[in-house]
């Protein structure tokens, strides 16, 4: 564990709490992409299957269970409790392509051609693009509630910090995780426009609006 990874994990955790806070406080999931949330639930379930096979640490186990449980709870909130506030007209990104592309990549790039490893690769590739429906929704509405932008920032920041963590681990442990590296760079790059607007507008007290 190094400082980058710890802060990254805490940001990831914070992003989920911010999202839950936004939904509960505003009693609405307006501005949140159900499709992105669905993709994250798929990411967590397919990646953390090793909960049943490998013990790493209490920290690791608790975080994994939390990520799976919270992602499914958010789907429940959006699909049932606050269904009336969700606008599917704005959430029209075709996730079939993201899912299909991730399956193909996972079948080609994996550490072993067994279900567990293929699903792990699939989750890594899918996570890198899972934010696209959310960013697409943002571009359609052209603006967002401030709390929603904090959520997206924390979620994007987490993987950017993982890049620092991987660099650290490469330098000090010789640890290399090539697929996660590539996916992490893509994932962070997808956020770059968002980060720029977040920095120039939201952090200066202005509303998030696309130029």
């Amino acid at each position: 564990m190094n400082i980058f990874r710890l802060v990254a994990d805490l940001m990831h955790l914070a992003s989920i709490f911010i999202l839950l806070l936004k939904i509960q406080k505003t009693r609405s999931c307006a501005g949140i992409s159900f499709k992105t949330q669905l993709l994250y639930a798929i990411v967590f379930v397919t990646r953390y299957l090793d909960l049943f096979t490998t013990w790493i640490s209490l920290y690791n186990t608790i975080m994994k269970i939390f990520f799976i449980a919270s992602s499914i709870y958010i789907l429940y909130l959006m699909k049932y409790k606050f269904r009336a506030t969700y606008d599917p007209i704005l959430d029209t990104f075709r996730i079939e392509f993201l899912l299909g592309g991730s399956v193909i990549l996972a079948l080609i790039f994996n550490y072993d051609f067994i279900p567990m490893e293929i699903l792990w690769s699939f989750s890594i590739f899918l996570e890198s693009v899972a934010i696209l429906p959310q960013l697409f929704m943002l571009s359609r509405t052209g603006e967002a509630e401030t709390i929603t932008t904090h959520y997206i920032f924390a979620l994007g920041g987490y993987r950017a910090l993982y890049l620092c963590n991987w660099l650290w681990r490469y330098i000090f442990d010789g640890h290399v995780e090539v697929y996660a590296w590539i996916a992490g760079v893509i994932q962070t790059a997808l956020y770059s426009d968002f980060f720029y607007i977040y920095y120039t507008k939201v952090l200066h007290g202005k509303k998030f609006e696309l130029p």
Binding site: R5, D9, H12, D50, T54, I56, S57, N60, M63, K64, F67, Y111, D112, W120, Y162, N165, E177, A180
Partner: peptide, 10 residues
Amino acid sequence: EKKEHKKDEL
């Protein structure tokens, strides 16, 4: 190489 691959991250 394959077997040494350890997934200890989230």
